[in-house]
């Protein structure tokens, strides 16, 4: 999503404007996204209206940001191939590849494992 259309606070009565890094591009499940360099990945996703970060392994239930300070691990995703990355405390960088996490797998891996299971 274009950064100017995101759910961001333009001017705050106490804080004024926010100091932000440059605009960077990253991908979410292959889709082009925009955010500010150095802000947590989760902040950039929230600003774009992304709610689901992962699906639980057993019940396949969606999960998103819960604590936003690195405590609860509900917001973990696969970032540049590394699963279980806490997106709320991992700074966003140009070109990052962010993927929703299915259990601890990518969607493709998870789907393949489901098919294998169904085949049994």
């Amino acid at each position: 999503m274009d950064i100017t259309k995101q759910r961001r606070i333009q001017e705050h009565p106490i804080l004024g404007s926010y100091e932000k890094g440059r605009v960077v591009h990253f991908t979410l499940d292959g889709k082009d996204m925009e955010g500010y360099e150095g802000e947590p990945i989760a902040a950039a996703l929230k600003a774009s209206g992304v709610m689901t970060h992962r699906y639980t392994a057993k019940h396949h239930k969606p999960r998103g940001v819960f604590c936003a300070i690195g405590r609860c691990t509900d917001c973990v995703m696969i970032v540049d191939g590394i699963p279980n990355t806490r997106t709320c405390i991992t700074p966003l960088k140009e070109g990052m590849a962010v993927q929703a996490q299915y259990g601890v797998q990518t969607k493709e891996e998870w789907e393949a494992s489901q098919e294998a299971k169904d085949g049994e």
Binding site: R7, L15, Y18, A43, P62, R63, A68, C88
Partner: peptide, 24 residues
């Protein structure tokens, strides 16, 4: 556990540290 249920402190972090609206 639905996305959109958060700690109040999480909302505070998003809006006051990062300038992102936690919800409408």
């Amino acid at each position: 556990d639905l996305p959109g249920v958060m700690g109040a402190g999480a909302a505070q972090t998003l809006m006051n540290r990062h300038g992102v609206l936690p919800g409408r």
